[in-house]
Design a protein around this nucleic acid. Structure first.
Lengths: 346, 346
DNA sequence: CAGTATATGGAAAGCGCTTTCCAACACGCT
DNA sequence: AGCGTGTTGGAAAGCGCTTTCCATATACTG
């Protein structure tokens, strides 16, 4: 069944030249080949339908054309937006993107980088955010060291905890600015759907939000901070806990947009109107969610651009030391937040 | 900089065995190796931090562990959902997913399959839908033939136009059922945001919708069919044309959910209420859009499952002839559609 | 006990390509 | 004529692995 492929040797033979010459013609070698032979080889290759064997090339050159992209969940619009940015840059550079998904499992992350190393991938972009799990972080760090020792480049999107090039979104300062703007609307009692306690992005956003409230002389009691999954369903489920907590909050901050989405749905289910009864804000500004009604107040992150920046970091010529690209977040107040007025959360 | 990797030969030497034995221990060969040597090799490999070179293995075995996934735009939730399904199955099978994006360019699709072939990818799932472009289709078909001739497997999601295994969603019958249900609500005048005329999914859905209306003795005048981009912005922009067309429609069908999303936003901008003034329905049931207000009536497609099915098609043992997996679409009527009553589209 | 089958180890021939090294030749000089 | 210099072609040595083929050792049969 599997028909034999045309090899370089066959092309060379048919064209009446040596293997070396054929190779030099068919890849961008520095060496010159006379016009005559070059045409002959090119013609023969086309005629025979020659396609270089990428594995053989990778082996002989000791480097591949592969770029890894590690995300938690490609169906999550946060990651798929970043992925779009990464693939655009990588493909423009003629590279091939390998997609790995972790399902938020730190061990799987290590596995994936390991696999990428086995494939002699040229670079990897790790977009999943770090957790507080020390042992997993250490293992990943080791794997990354091995990867770079081998000549590969690594960039992360999010926390610069790994000593690699990093694209760092303004989680803290964005959340802080958001808190101040929300306080500016007149809110005094807040609740936060904080996501998983061990997830650094979630922690940073919570911390920033707290800092912003503190700036305004406001306090965020621990009882008003609800842990939850980092997903739409997490946000949805957290609302029950939130209501049970009787926080009296008039404004709820969910540490990402999809959680805010779930929360808004749950609030509706509980007969609460957004923003009349309670204001809701998120973080990320997921494109697909921009047409939500009421439109979601959030902190906009240029997700695709972040992916592009990460890819560039990893594909550009080497520069000394790990670089950090900071990406600002822009507070966007829309219809899901208003001045407090309704019943709030009793 | 690039430190030398540990090779099998070194492991063999350190363990005092031959290359062959080391290879047999470290991969699942059929050949037996005595417990003693096996332990020695395993220990040495671990101690030296041996990692097999995937390119060398691929070359020697003439087969890789790569599975291609070709989509138009990974940021589009339709594709990212399918991608999630494909990666889950592929990764569970220990394979590595290569993600290629076409940006809806048919030539790029051919390029990607070609690249995958050069990498001796084991299989490829093509999720981008076909167009009416004959020449592009022919080229893709040729490339696919070459790919399969080489032992690779190919599956498509959508139209079974390529002679490959295919996962076919019920575009036609789903749209048809939707039309009947909408007519059942009492609507008599419809408009369709039909997407690009050369895109087969879009055509099928339009055709199905027309058929459903015909079932009910209703007609869809050509003037009520608005061509547009297949995106949120396409749907948004189409509304201006729709209004200019003075169709008098009380119900608008957008051939996919993201277009419906854009259309709903645009209708709001024009001061029209959904569903009071005009009902809107989409197609796909994008997960992220389930919490929209008003909730979008649509035809649910199990997108992740479709990705999984496609992946299975391509990874399962070979069976004779191209197989087709039909996936039903379930009409889900929600709040974005109601009985006609308001002003409609004058 | 010869004779055959079975388990296990190693040598070596590739897999398809890149790249070093050398040879041959054509120049432009002195 | 003799010589460096530059250009172009080819032979061949890998790249790191798998797998065939052979050799040896052991077990089993009648």
């Amino acid at each position: 069944m599997a028909s034999r492929q045309v090899t370089l040797a066959e092309v060379a033979k048919h064209a009446g030249v040596s293997l070396a010459t054929a190779s030099r013609v068919l890849n961008g070698s520095t060496r010159q080949v006379s016009e005559e032979l070059r045409e002959r080889v090119l013609g023969t290759a086309r005629r025979l339908g020659y396609l270089p064997n990428a594995s053989a090339q990778a082996l002989a050159r000791n480097s591949s054309v592969l770029v890894g992209l590690v995300v938690h969940d490609i169906a999550d619009p946060y990651f798929s937006s970043i992925a779009a940015g990464v693939t655009r840059i990588a493909e423009d550079a003629g590279l091939v993107v390998v997609l790995g998904t972790t399902g938020r499992d730190a061990r799987r992350e290590v596995e994936l980088v390991n696999t990428l190393r086995a494939h002699r991938a040229r670079a990897v972009v790790i977009a999943g955010s770090r957790t507080t799990d020390r042992s997993a972080s250490r293992q990943l760090a080791e794997e990354i060291t091995a990867f770079t020792a081998q000549g590969g480049r690594v960039a992360c999107v999010s926390q610069a905890k790994l000593g690699t090039d990093t694209v760092v979104p303004a989680n803290r300062s964005g959340a802080r600015a958001l808190a101040r703007r929300l306080a500016g609307l007149g809110h005094r009692r807040f609740a936060v759907l904080a996501g998983p306690p061990d997830l650094l992005v979630a922690r940073d956003r919570l911390a920033g939000f707290k800092a912003g409230l503190a700036d305004e002389g406001l306090d965020l009691p621990d009882a008003n901070v609800i842990a939850s999954g980092f997903t739409r369903d997490g946000g949805h489920a957290a609302v029950a806990d939130l209501i049970a907590a009787h926080t009296g909050a008039t404004c709820v901050f969910a540490v990402n947009d999809v959680m805010a989405l779930g929360a808004m749905a749950a609030l509706r289910d509980h007969g609460l109107r957004v923003p009349q009864d309670v204001s809701v804000a998120g973080f990320d500004d997921i494109p697909t969610l921009r047409d939500l009604v009421p439109a979601l107040s959030t902190v906009r992150l240029p997700l695709e651009e972040m992916g592009e920046r990460a890819a560039r970091l990893v594909l550009d010529d080497v520069v000394a030391g790990p670089r950090t690209v900071r990406v600002a977040g822009e507070v966007v107040l829309r219809a899901s937040t208003s001045a407090p007025g309704g019943v709030g959360l009793r």
